[in-house]
Amino acid sequence: MAIEIQHLNVYIKENQILKDICLTLPEKQITCIIGPSGCGKSTLLRTINRLIDSTEHVRLEGKVLVDGKDIIGSGHEITELRRKIGLVSQRPCPLPMSIFDNVAYGCRINRMYKKHRQLIYNVQKQLQAVGLWDEVRGRVRTSATRLSIGQQQRLCLARSLAVEPEYILADEATSALDPISSKTIEDLFVSLKSQYSIIMVTHTLHQALRIADNVVFMYLGEVVESGPARQIFEQPQQELTRKYLSGIFS
């Protein structure tokens, strides 16, 4: 089921960060959120999995429907919501433990497997899914911090996939990576979109052009335009979108 956002407003203290956001993020597709720095892309992403809650003085209004249930408000089971919505952040952030334990961590806290053998199988499966298994085989018990930045980011993706999410949020997931690692992650997202709904914040228009099925353009906390990627890139309806895409501002 898709994620539907209805009249979402986010305030931090008196500042309104997101203004009346209305969006539908379709399932099993890649939706890229583009826009200049400070336009609220990351805030929108952090609202969808309620990580925004750890920000001080934050106030949310409106509705965010995930699988038809509104996740704004206190009644929702946030830990289950977060398990369902994986996150790959801008900077790879391995947990201070071994490669194996990084991937197994989410499975353990969500008590997904009764038998250790099942856990080992899942860890291996996820490391294979992100193309890391052949590189780390034989040293999965060593510290994850010894991996290269690109490998760490793939590990973080494997960690997110291990808890069997339905959605993946990627917050500029390739911006800290070298071009080759960046391409690997991009390819992974494309290969994963048949199984997961991917919502990706990106600063790179070319990246959005390459992989996005849908594009959301945001500016100063508002959604200026959204729709199928081809339509947004080839025939933007709004003047602001056209200017942004042509590089008049960034």
């Binding site: 750890s54 919505i85 996150l87 952040s89 900077r91």
Partner: peptide
Amino acid sequence: REILDASYALGATRWETLKV
């Protein structure tokens, strides 16, 4: 803070995150 977020994003509670 990113480590805390990484743990929360996997569905961990604050108590479970203490291990990290």
